[in-house]
Computed example of a mutant assay.
Amino acid sequence: MRIMRSKELPKELRDRTVARHRSGQGYKRISAALKVPKSTVASIILKWKKFGTTRTLPRPGRPAKLSNRGRRALVREVKKNPKITVAELQRCSREMGESSTKSTITAALHQSGLYGRVARRKPLLSARHMKACIEFAKKHMKDSQTMRNKILWSDETKIELFGVNSKRYVWRKPGTAHHLPNTIPTVKHGGGSIMLWGCFSAAGTGRLVAIEGKMNAAKYRDILEENLFQSAQDLRLG
């Protein structure tokens, strides 16, 4: 969609608008007679009533390089895709008929409370995983803090390279860093890998073990026997 900049009406036409209003004509009739939108007629008359003139008043500063409509269009693009780059927004701006520099686009987004920030990396969870996490949290909401302090959590994981391991920026508002569209998903597959076992509690982290070769039941029991109880002792959970 191409956004056109509105053109200022000639002063002679604005004077005729006010003259018709003073003669008792309504906005709708003036709009039809002068072929001017009714909203424009209302704006001209409101300005005349407030300032007593139809001439163009001096602006308080340099006119904005990007119109309000153009800025709103860019904000919509960012909300649809928070990871969109400034260069891509610049192309969108040109397509809308408002060619803008990168600094102008950045300033416009800042005015709307959107800032470029490094995207947080979070595990890619399925709907089933999310549901299970919520159910677990609800089930243990009433557990006492003393009970929680005695729990030692352990798990093993295979961590592999997934995608490009570089910073990716997103446009977001303060306080939305962990909202799903503003994060980069990570998974446990995709390239060179390392398998780890570790544990932690409210008191801190326990042992971290690098697992050589393929994990099986016997190796898992050995890891627990050699590290789980010792971690509990180190963290004084007994």
Rank of each mutant, 00 (worst) to 15 (best):
M1Y: 00
I3R: 04
M4L: 12
S6R: 10
E8T: 00
L9A: 05
P10E: 08
P10I: 12
P10V: 02
E12P: 01
E12T: 01
R14H: 01
T17F: 04
A19Y: 06
R20A: 14
Q25V: 06
K28L: 03
R29V: 05
I30C: 03
R55L: 06
L57F: 07
R59N: 08
P60W: 04
P60K: 12
L66N: 05
S67Q: 09
S67N: 00
N68P: 08
N68D: 12
R69H: 12
R71Q: 11
R72T: 09
A73S: 13
A73M: 11
V75F: 03
R76A: 11
R76G: 01
K79N: 04
P82H: 06
K83C: 04
A87G: 06
Q90D: 00
R91C: 00
R94Q: 08
R94Y: 00
G97S: 11
G97H: 01
E98C: 00
S99D: 08
S100C: 12
S100D: 01
T106R: 13
A107G: 03
A107V: 04
G113W: 00
Y115I: 00
Y115P: 01
R117A: 01
R117F: 01
V118C: 04
V118A: 05
L125C: 01
R128F: 00
A132L: 10
I134G: 00
F136Q: 07
A137F: 00
M141V: 05
D143A: 09
S144H: 02
Q145A: 14
T146R: 03
M147K: 08
L152N: 06
W153F: 15
E156N: 14
E156C: 13
T157K: 15
G163T: 05
V164R: 13
N165Y: 13
K167C: 10
R172N: 04
K173A: 13
P174R: 07
N182K: 07
T183S: 14
I184C: 04
P185T: 06
G191V: 03
F200D: 03
S201C: 14
A210C: 15
A210T: 15
N216V: 11
N216A: 12
N216W: 08
N216Y: 11
R221M: 03
D222K: 14
I223R: 06
E226M: 10
Q230N: 14
S231Y: 08
S231Q: 09
S231C: 10
A232C: 13
A232F: 09
Q233R: 15
D234S: 12
G238D: 11
